[in-house]
Design a protein around this nucleic acid. Structure first.
Lengths: 336, 336
DNA sequence: CTGAAAGCGCTTACAG
DNA sequence: CTGAAAGCGCTTACAG
């Protein structure tokens, strides 16, 4: 590959001049600039970003750590991040957390070695070591769909899961439901707990104290949802509605109900959370809470850009609102 | 950030020694090595990858261009690529082609500027300019799920779509179907045409000449499939089976059939292609051809690794076999 | 086993 | 408007 010296030599000018011409420096004769551009084309020359980054202390590279590249949820969000950052001249490097604690740490280390300009993080494991690493990082960081570990004050963007769960529950109550079951995520999940809290609080506000018979926790997948639905109805045959903490769980519930010929929404209403692609399928038509994925991604990217531009002043975290998407799995309770 | 000089100064040794100790050079006293390691920990030092890459002409970075990060199909495959490459110490940089010709080219340019060690490409647009760029690249490249543009001999890994379509058709014929319709992709799609060719050839082999009444081409999505199914049955009410060139199309067909109370597979059999997650859903249970996504990703990564290790000898392209996944949308034709 | 020096390919004051 | 020189943070012959 040709380098800047080659093209300087070719033109009989100094490398400084070539550099300035390439970078559109004002103090360079138009004619010289033209010649340089031509030589660049001729040699098929591309400036070495490593050398450039080394000296400018700026790489135009942003790291984006996602839990799992093949997970459909984060990927649409990643797209928004990537597009926003790309428009501003940054290349985003996806890190595959791979639901693996070591890989997440490895990514952080990589980011510092490679001199990334900023980081957007959706880590799954935030142990001591991770926090420790993070606190030494000296790079602008924003958390996406996660809260920073205790003691560290990085800005984040997330949905207000608690509020959203309340909205979902409110809807179910308006439809006349009182006996509402909950299919929840593992207790180790922050967002799972927020959604659970929304469920519980609304139930209590309406004078119902949801006991263990009202809920099955601990899952995330379609299989989990299917299994939970069966158990839930076993414990509590009076349920007229079920709130699933995520769509996969909700779809699993729907499966179980379909398998057992329990009509949805005539016999039982089902509410999901996320609004995955799945939810809109003809056979599913799940009523659910939609997370503003694109907006979250764009927002996180903008926040990071702002932090890079102004390292002093940290932006405010952003808690976004989820939107109720009404489809066909919830219905007013029959009053007999 | 501390640099190598800081830690050399701290220990009163030369930077050469620090460098050697870090990189496990044999000619360095064990004691020295220990001290260096300790100082590195103390300073929280991480070597600058830019400087390292600049001098070593090796960045341990691989570019992976995908058409669309949020597309579920490539992402599971990307995971396999990433994992394989990560095990060998490489970081993969995802490029979002974004179904946009300029972004794909931009990615190529970026790759050369940033001195990537290799590239795995799934481009959607391969015009003159793209080929031109490619031919100047001097970087090991493998194509994934795409064939290199005419005149360029990069190795590729893909599924043998023609063969796979024949397998699917063979299955339908074994079930007794003769009047088989085809819902196909745009004629601009290489893989779409391969699948169509498989369909047509098998039909002809069995003495049926599929006319325009047998097929609707031009779509990729669920909506397209739904619409195509209606038209197909309109033209050709005798059809007993339909082969959809991808699962989305197949699912759309299934939707239309469900909406019109046409029992699948009792009245009509439907065959898909891809085996997306969707296909296994309780309500769908689509019989389809599964592409070995993980294997393709792993294979492409291995090929690239081999090319990097040995720049002389180009590896053979790999055409993989798709596997028939029998679920519930195909059934033996009733013989009355 | 260790150090001094050159060099990777750029950018950027500084001087003219 | 242009050039010479220093320097970014490393690695690696070369010499000892």
């Amino acid at each position: 590959m040709a380098n800047i010296k080659d093209i300087a030599k070719h033109l009989g000018v100094s490398v400084s001049t070539v550099s300035r011409a390439m970078n559109n420096h004002p103090d360079v004769r138009e004619e010289t600039k033209q010649q340089v551009m031509e030589a660049i084309r001729l040699y098929n020359y591309r400036p070495n970003a490593l050398a450039k980054g080394l000296i400018q202390k700026k790489t135009f590279t942003i790291g984006l750590l996602v839990p799992d590249i093949s997970d459909p949820f984060p990927s649409s969000l990643s797209n928004a991040v990537e597009e926003t950052l790309f428009e501003h001249g940054y290349q985003v490097v996806f890190g595959n957390g791979n639901r693996n604690s070591d890989k997440e740490k490895q990514f952080l280390l990589n980011a510092v070695e490679r001199q990334f300009d900023g980081l957007i993080l959706t880590p799954d494991y935030m142990d001591e070591e991770f926090s420790e690493l993070l606190s030494n990082l000296e790079i602008p960081i924003v958390f996406l769909r996660r809260r920073p570990p205790a003691g560290l004050s990085f800005p984040f963007v997330d949905v207000d899961h608690y509020q959203a769960a309340k909205t979902a529950m409110q809807y179910l109550l308006e439809l006349g439901h009182r006996q509402i079951g909950f299919i929840g995520m593992p207790q180790t999940s922050f967002i799972g707990n927020e959604r659970l809290r929304g469920y519980t609080d609304v139930m209590r506000m309406h004078g119902i104290d949801p006991g263990p018979g009202h809920m099955i926790l601990g899952g995330r997948t379609i299989d989990n949802g299917r299994e939970a639905m069966g158990r839930l109805l076993d414990h509590n045959p009076d349920l007229t509605a079920v709130f699933a903490a995520n769509d996969l769980l909700g779809i699993g519930a729907l499966e179980w109900l379909a398998m057992h010929q329990i009509a949805v929404p005539d016999k039982l209403s089902v509410m999901g959370f996320d609004n995955l692609e799945y939810a809109g399928l003809y056979w599913i038509q799940l009523t659910t809470m939609e997370q503003p994925r694109r907006e979250m991604g764009v927002r996180a990217a903008q926040m990071l850009l702002q932090m890079i531009a102004n390292k002093e002043q940290a932006p405010e975290s952003d808690l976004m609102e989820a939107k109720l998407v009404i489809r066909k799995t919830c219905k007013a309770r029959l009053t007999h």
